[in-house]
Design a protein around this nucleic acid. Structure first.
Lengths: 219, 219
DNA sequence: AAATATTTTTAGACAAGTCTAAATAAATTA
DNA sequence: TAATTTATTTAGACTTGTCTAAAAATATTT
């Protein structure tokens, strides 16, 4: 059985590996974990002893098959709980991450599986991220095209948002943007990369920062 | 913010105080917590520094007003989660305690309150124990009369069971005994204190051990 | 390729929560 | 009440996960 800290490291290594295929450096991981590199060295040694990552001094680390499976189970729990909080307990997008960070460490496979069934086997969490099944299998999607990439007059619906700050989620709430919201691009401005869009009949201007965090599926 | 360990000590002190009004001795607490007395001494010092218990050397400890409030909030969470697990996720009586022991440490008042609302403000958990409200107020009840106390031909319904081993819960499941089950006493045997009862039209004989763990409200 | 800068690891420390063994206080018994 | 037993505390140690500071390895620059 893993400690919460060990689980958090596995999750962090997993998510960094998704972005950059190669071995994850000590410094990068320490930044992600908000710890010092020396702490990371200690932890990767321990996880390596447990065969959850492969690690050679000065060479960074990488998840083993087993380690990856465990990471995916934690992510599975995190995302199922997020669905629960939003769908059943009426939490907003912006509020669920912190709580799910705690709930993801509850140890009970049966609980996870019952929860999944209770929620109707959802395949995506409230941010559009796919939920691994009990074997760790999930649909790779869709978070490829970003609002900034949509051409003028192009139309699409929101399939996800960048996992991000609670400020960003509040911003999305303010404009009533959620999964499935339809957005049409009216105009794009080169000088500051901002973008003018039509949402629910209203024209709104987004900065490039925002436009790069909203994932779109073309219609 | 309290650690899980500190929370567990508060809970233990609370439940021991309910049984025996006085100050709780170090040894008793160590037994309840399955730790050594020396560990308890360390912890009660810490909790005393935080003004959650009053403690003088060699005199045992007692919850302060604040400490009692915190204990009740943890118990509140524990029991709400038990209701969730049984009512929504179809867990059995015998399976929920361990999981609720983990869930009770999740930190989010909003979560607890939303959960309570979602469950329809239940006043008792699946074992018949009362659920404190957000101010720590709860109905003191009912766990006074035990099946053994019911006179011959007396009839009552189950209002609770002793918080106990999972073996006991499995036993109850086996005979389809739950909260609200009606039981009539047919005969009592002095030589071994066993008792013959009628449940759902069937005659069943219970040992005194069992008969002392089932709480009854007379009809 | 040598010098410099960066990354990573090692060594030693600390807090939390536990333990064992020894010392001390309180309670009980003779 | 003195002796003995039991309960409690103290002292020192261990583990986990972190830290700082220094050393070592790797990478980069000139």
């Amino acid at each position: 059985m893993l400690s919460q800290s060990e689980e958090n490291y596995l999750k962090a290594i997993y998510s960094l590996s998704e972005l950059q295929g190669e071995a994850i450096s000590t410094n990068l991981l320490s930044e992600k974990m908000s710890t010092k590199p020396s702490s990371v060295t200690d932890m990767v040694k321990k996880l390596s002893d447990k065969k959850l990552i492969s690690y050679k001094k000065y060479q960074g680390c990488e998840l083993t098959i087993v380690g990856k499976k465990m990471a995916l189970q934690i992510i599975r729990k995190h995302r199922l709980w997020e669905v629960f909080l939003v769908k059943k307990l009426n939490f907003g997008w912006d509020e669920v991450h912190e709580i799910a960070e705690q709930l993801e460490h509850i140890q009970s496979t049966k609980l996870t599986d019952h929860l999944e069934e209770y929620l109707g086997f959802p395949r995506f969490d409230p941010h559009g991220d796919p939920i691994p099944d009990k074997n760790g299998v999930f649909e790779k999607i869709n978070k490829s095209k970003v609002l900034s990439d949509v051409i003028i007059n192009g139309k699409g619906s929101v399939v996800g948002v960048e996992d991000g700050s609670s400020g960003f989620f509040q911003f999305l709430n303010r404009y009533e943007i959620g999964l499935g919201t339809e957005i049409q691009v009216i105009e794009k401005f080169d000088f500051d990369l901002s973008i003018l869009v039509l949402i629910n009949g209203k024209e709104i201007s987004f900065s490039s920062v925002v436009a790069n965090k909203i994932f779109i599926q073309l219609l």
